[in-house]
Design a binder for these strands. Structure first.
Lengths: 203, 203
DNA sequence: CCTCAAACAGGATGTTTGTCCTGTTTGCAG
DNA sequence: CTGCAAACAGGACAAACATCCTGTTTGAGG
């Protein structure tokens, strides 16, 4: 075909594809995103696509394992673990997310949340991948709660239970924020999580 | 065509279609459910379908406004409002849902939650419909919290904020339960919501 | 320079999707 | 009895869809 500008860059191509798919899945959803559109947006031909990802499901798993997991790590786990306390970390994370949503105008929701509902009912491998990320997320929060307990905070709170509760409240609030296209649910949940984490539960 | 067993039953046909679609949307999702399959499962021909619902979106809105809203009303609002306190009602509702999920083996998630993520990003009308149901749900919980306050309970809790928090925690927990195919997240959130609603927040 | 597997191009393929169209039947109004 | 609008039957339709196929190009190893 005599295309002379071509250079082999498998990693870059995969990264570009995963990046485009991540964004499309986050905003439009998995089933609503056509492979054809993803290819066009990422400037990837059909041959190249099916070489790196034999099926759409393979791309979905790659997005989940590489990109979504990294997004959770970056937006939640890192800032949480580097905060003085759980309460502080959760507050910092939520404030940052709310600020970011305000700046970009529209609310597309938490990528993990979006894909979780759509994919965990359709395929066992997908659900497994979603669950792994949720488990990792919870584990990090639980770890932070345990760290708090070594300095005399949240001593009456079971770390796993508290972690599940925090993640659930955030996820649900993000769902409602997306439906309402407003940050109000997130702000309210941030407020309640603050008081919840300030005083030991079940005292 | 000489089909002699036919009888006109527009309301029944719409109900049957909405019922089938509700179940399909809940388990497989909106985009993953083909109109063809819905017609087959509901024993409705193409002509009848497009007579009652000109587009798939019309059916989706009908499912949202009629069936999903009714499901929330039945599973959440009614039992909550007929309970002595908010804490009691939330506990009753969650216990019933957990029991039901255990009996049926698999967890398909909260129908509103599932459709919220998938549809609110795709269409303004759909998002509006989802938001209305969420608002109604929150309003009912807030109303119950206000009722508690008239008898000296939860006096330091803002009703709207508390309602958002309760709904968010439940929704998020259901998402995690679906991903994990386990009722554990729901049980943990029920536990934490119990202590959250037992003592006034921010005291 | 030669080889060869991996990387990529560009379309073909068969299926699925949502919607529409033409005709027939029902049931109520007149 | 008779018009007539609504209710329904059954398939047609093009567009969109995910996947596959054949060929070409790259780049590293020998």
């Amino acid at each position: 075909m005599r295309r002379q500008g071509r250079t082999n860059d498998p990693e870059g191509m995969q990264r570009r594809l995963v990046e485009v798919a991540f964004h499309a899945f986050k905003t439009r959803g998995y089933n609503a995103s056509a492979v054809h559109d993803l290819r066009r947006d990422a400037n990837v031909t059909g041959g190249a696509f099916s070489h790196h990802f034999p099926t759409k499901k393979a791309l979905g798993l790659a997005v989940l394992n590489n990109r979504v997991a990294a997004a959770v790590e970056e937006a939640w786990i890192k800032p949480l673990l580097s905060s003085p306390t759980t309460a502080d970390g959760v507050q910092t994370v939520l404030a940052a997310i709310i600020r970011e949503l305000r700046e970009q105008g529209s609310i597309s929701g938490c990528p993990l949340n979006n894909l979780a509902l759509e994919l965990s009912g359709h395929d066992a491998d997908m659900r497994e991948a979603v669950d792994v990320i949720f488990k990792r997320w919870q584990q990090a929060v639980a770890e932070k709660i345990r760290a708090d307990q070594t300095i005399g905070r949240l001593c009456r709170l079971d770390p796993e239970t508290g972690a599940t509760f925090v993640v659930a409240a955030y996820s649900g609030a993000m769902t409602m924020a997306k439906a309402a296209q407003s940050t109000a649910p997130l702000e309210r949940c941030a407020d309640q999580l603050a008081t919840y984490l300030a005083e030991p539960a079940g005292s």
